[in-house]
Amino acid sequence: RLRTTILPEQLEILYRWYMQDSNPTRKMLDCISEEVGLKKRVVQVWFQNTRARERK
C-alpha cells in the first residue's frame, strides 16, 4: 500500500475542521473526506494521529 500524500491545501482544510472538533462523528468524516478529496479512512487516521501528537 502506498502512503497517501496530503497536500498543503488539504492540510489547511483538515486543521480548520480539527479546530472546530478534534473528534468528528462518522457523518462529519464523510463531509470532510468529500471536501478534502481523500478517502474517509485516510481522514480518520489523520485525526487519530493529530490527537495523539497533541497529547505528547
Rank of each mutant, 00 (worst) to 15 (best):
R1V: 02
L2K: 14
L2Y: 14
L2Q: 13
R3G: 10
R3S: 04
R3K: 14
T4A: 08
I6S: 02
L7M: 11
L7F: 02
P8C: 06
P8D: 13
P8E: 11
P8R: 08
E9L: 04
E9N: 07
L11S: 12
L11Q: 14
L11A: 14
L11W: 08
E12S: 01
E12C: 00
E12M: 04
E12T: 11
E12N: 13
E12R: 07
L14C: 04
L14M: 05
L14T: 01
Y15G: 10
Y15W: 14
Y15F: 09
R16K: 14
R16D: 10
R16M: 11
R16A: 07
W17H: 12
W17I: 10
W17A: 10
W17P: 03
W17F: 09
Y18R: 03
Y18H: 07
Y18T: 03
M19R: 12
M19N: 13
M19A: 14
Q20I: 12
Q20P: 01
Q20R: 13
Q20V: 10
Q20F: 13
D21S: 05
D21Y: 04
D21N: 08
D21V: 06
D21M: 01
D21E: 06
S22G: 08
S22D: 13
S22T: 10
N23T: 10
N23V: 07
N23H: 10
P24R: 01
P24D: 02
P24T: 03
P24V: 06
T25A: 05
T25R: 05
T25I: 05
R26S: 15
R26K: 15
R26T: 15
R26V: 14
K27A: 15
K27C: 10
K27D: 15
K27T: 12
K27W: 05
M28G: 06
M28L: 08
M28T: 13
M28F: 03
M28D: 09
M28Y: 01
L29I: 15
L29E: 07
L29V: 09
L29T: 01
D30P: 06
D30V: 06
D30H: 14
D30A: 13
C31E: 15
C31D: 14
C31R: 15
C31N: 15
C31L: 12
I32A: 05
I32Y: 01
I32H: 00
I32W: 02
S33T: 09
S33R: 04
S33N: 02
S33A: 13
E34P: 00
E35C: 03
V36E: 05
V36D: 02
V36I: 05
G37M: 04
G37D: 03
G37H: 02
G37Q: 06
G37L: 05
G37K: 08
L38N: 02
L38T: 01
L38E: 05
L38A: 00
K39Y: 00
K39T: 13
K39R: 09
K40Y: 10
K40N: 09
K40F: 02
K40S: 14
K40I: 07
R41W: 11
R41T: 14
R41Y: 09
R41H: 12
R41E: 15
R41F: 08
V42G: 02
V42Y: 07
V42I: 07
V42S: 05
V42P: 00
V42F: 06
V42A: 05
V43K: 00
V43R: 03
V43E: 01
V43M: 01
Q44C: 09
Q44N: 06
Q44A: 12
Q44T: 12
Q44S: 11
Q44G: 09
V45M: 10
V45L: 11
V45C: 11
V45P: 01
W46K: 03
W46F: 02
W46Y: 05
W46D: 00
W46R: 03
F47N: 06
F47I: 00
F47Y: 02
F47V: 03
F47P: 03
Q48F: 03
Q48D: 15
N49H: 12
N49F: 05
N49K: 10
N49G: 06
N49A: 08
T50S: 07
R51W: 01
R51E: 03
R51A: 11
R51K: 12
R51C: 00
A52P: 04
A52V: 08
A52L: 12
A52F: 03
R53Q: 14
E54Y: 09
E54Q: 08
E54N: 10
E54V: 02
E54G: 07
E54A: 05
R55C: 13
R55I: 11
K56T: 04
K56A: 15
K56E: 08
